[in-house]
Design a protein around this nucleic acid. Structure first.
Lengths: 237, 237
DNA sequence: CGAATGCTTCGGCCTGGGCCGAAGCGCATC
DNA sequence: GATGCGCTTCGGCCCAGGCCGAAGCATTCG
């Protein structure tokens, strides 16, 4: 009945992440953007042929979704769960591996994207502020926003209707660099996209060739710093 | 400077989990007990020689700690982080893989151990109860227990001094089967060990040959059911 | 209708690493 | 000490799978 050579579900998923080229692709996709096969081949450092094989395995394995558009094929992470798994594994790697692997990690610790939401010190601080002030209240499976929180966030351009429509309004995602939760779910996604659109957050260029965090780096702009202070009283270092 | 053939930190960690035999070993260690090399060889379904090689890699990779005692060598998971990574990856696997891989999973969804703390519906319900009632209050990086919570938990045999001594008093660990957080940290550990010692929780035997959740299964005893109701008003299904 | 571009498929090469049996080593027991 | 047991090391076998270049489809553009 059961195939004795079956790798087992955990090993099968881990194997998809266990190849350096695929790992680099997944890391790049943690920036939240959908990337073409060619772009992913470049970040992985392999030829198009090799990349194509890897991407086929990733999408067949359910980690990545593909969307053909013209002669391009756009790839993105399949779900919040996938992002959480990569983030968690990355955190473990950072803890275990020699620090040199992450020598460019300092700027990313300040602020970075975790798929579609905000991570790093900024993401964690935001989470602590919102939950500590009672603006978010614990509900089964996550958090709910009190009316005042909705009003204040709405004023920063966050689309709360779209956040409400998500399967999860707000839940936690463990932040590897801070070892504390940051905000995920519909609200986390809308906050990140609104603040980027508003110019409060800006994507940063890669720190160098083969920068594994390349597509995830963001920084808080001066306007963002002022805005956060005014809107929710968040003082940033 | 940087070795171009280096697998990258994420891939290196994933590779350790990507082998079926190693994955079964790690799954067994999620039960929280320290197991000998021989026991792990058996659960992995390989000879002692092969198991020895795997265990060397796991400990060199930092996922597992070894403790020699007489002619036995006891192995256990290295940290909360490692447990969290395995749990998250397992959750992803459960979401993606066909349900048949987890046909015996139903009992484990009710209650199981996640390394040293309680998971499954019971673990999640407990978390919701404690946070929802205000017995645990959000603090930066986790939760703190209000005095009444300390008194009530203490009455169930939980050693709060040992919980306080842990690097984290109480924090969240994402539960794969429920997709909600359960309680980890020092408090999570002490709760699990106290309630097992008190006979409120009982370890269950494996559901069959090659049961990947074998060493993690627990059940709430009738005494435990009554005790939880009396102590913290937790009604269990 | 070519020609260029993005991507996939195919075939062949090659290495990493999983597997075992046999032998070796250390501890515990007698 | 001698014997037994748990575990590791060594040597050799074998195969999954990563890599590429070349060729084959699509799509878009001139």
């Amino acid at each position: 009945m059961t195939d004795p050579t079956a790798p087992g579900p955990l090993a099968a998923i881990a194997a998809l992440m266990a190849d350096p080229a695929r790992a680099r692709m997944l890391a790049a996709l943690m920036g939240g953007e959908a990337l073409t096969a060619g772009e992913l081949a470049r970040v992985a450092g392999v030829t198009a042929a090799t990349a194509s094989g890897h991407l086929a395995r990733l999408s067949e394995g359910g980690l990545v979704l593909v969307h053909a558009q013209g002669r391009h094929r756009y790839h993105r992470l399949a779900s919040e769960q996938v992002a959480a798994a990569i983030e968690t594994l990355g955190g473990l790697a950072a803890e275990i591996a020699p620090a040199r692997s992450w020598k460019h990690g300092e700027t990313a610790r300040q602020a970075r994207l975790c798929w579609n939401h905000l991570a790093g010190r900024l993401g964690v601080t935001l989470h602590e502020r919102l939950t500590g002030e009672g603006l978010l209240r614990p509900v089964p499976g996550g958090w709910d926003a009190v009316p005042e929180a909705r009003a204040r966030l709405s004023a920063t351009g966050v689309d709360l209707d779209r956040a409400d429509a998500a399967p999860r309004f707000a839940c936690d995602c463990m932040d590897w660099s801070e070892r504390r939760p940051h905000l995920a779910g519909g609200l986390g996604r809308e906050i990140a996209s609104a603040w980027i659109a508003r110019g409060w957050l800006r994507r940063l260029p890669a720190a160098g060739e083969g920068d594994i965090l390349a597509r995830r780096r963001v920084e808080l702009t001066p306007a963002g710093r002022r805005g956060l202070k005014d809107a929710i009283g968040l003082e940033t270092a």
